[in-house]
Amino acid sequence: MVTELAVDHVSVRFDLPGATVAAVADVSLRLRPGQCLALVGESGCGKTVLASALLGFLPGNAQVSGSATLSDDRGPTLDLLSATDQQLATSVRGRRIGLIPQSPASHLTPVRTARAQLEEVVRAHHPAEPDPRGRANGVAARAGLSPADLDHYPHELSGGMAQRVATALALVGDPWLLIADEPTTGLDHHLVEGLLEEFRRLVADGHAVLLITHDLAAAQRVADRIAVMYAGRLIEIGPPSTVLDAPGHPYTRGLGDALPDRAFTAVPGMPPLLTDLPPGCSFAPRCDRVGPECAELPTLAADAEHAVACHRPC
């Protein structure tokens, strides 16, 4: 059996009084063991909503369409979008897909030590384990923590430590796929390096990593593919060197130019309003290459090594 997550034409909308937010639109992507895909794009473009959809964490006002098929030898092949919360909780989260959430410190229970929380998850995933403490230490070591580090309460952990505890918690059930949402935000340079190094090790070990980030430099250092999201859609996907150094989409080029070691100029105009997207290309109001054909929605070629959703690529 092929171990794979196949996301096909996934859309997520939120109904608000008097408006609909099109947070994710027609996203398709594939992830297999040994791959690291970075999902990049400006804040609010839909990255977290996509991850939440895959794990069944969307709020009640969300409408989802498309499919996300999870196949591996750990359990039955499953469409994550139509699975029940019970199915996701007992057989998917933590066991087949591990999540390292955005701002990990806020997901730890304040009144219990990191060790207590990690050992509880060890017992839940491995009830027959004779030495939960030893197993917790082992997982912690893989995330870059010493046994002594685990004896702290969450408020005593620095941002970098809390990040590593969250990574350890996600690794306990040995999921083959890890989804990390903005894991490097606010970390010092050397901690970012350490974390990216850990992701590279996991990928080399046969894990798959979906790295959600707004940090292009981090994406470039660890991913084998970068997918760029704009207004809920994937607009470019390809190898990091191509996407960053020879981008095809004007938005991707703009993101690269915004880096402080490049031109440091913002993409002109305002981020799109997901309640009021123009028909056709949603980047058109900000695009210096716009032409009449852009009134038609550009699509992303499926399964090409480098694909660009643009009628007039750079």
Binding site: S43, L255, P260, A266
Partner: peptide, 17 residues
């Protein structure tokens, strides 16, 4: 104080501008 840490490169460049 770390005003742009949570933000993408384009928003960072815009706010600094």
């Amino acid at each position: 104080d770390e005003m742009t840490t949570m933000l993408d490169a384009s928003t960072t460049a815009a706010l600094v501008g």
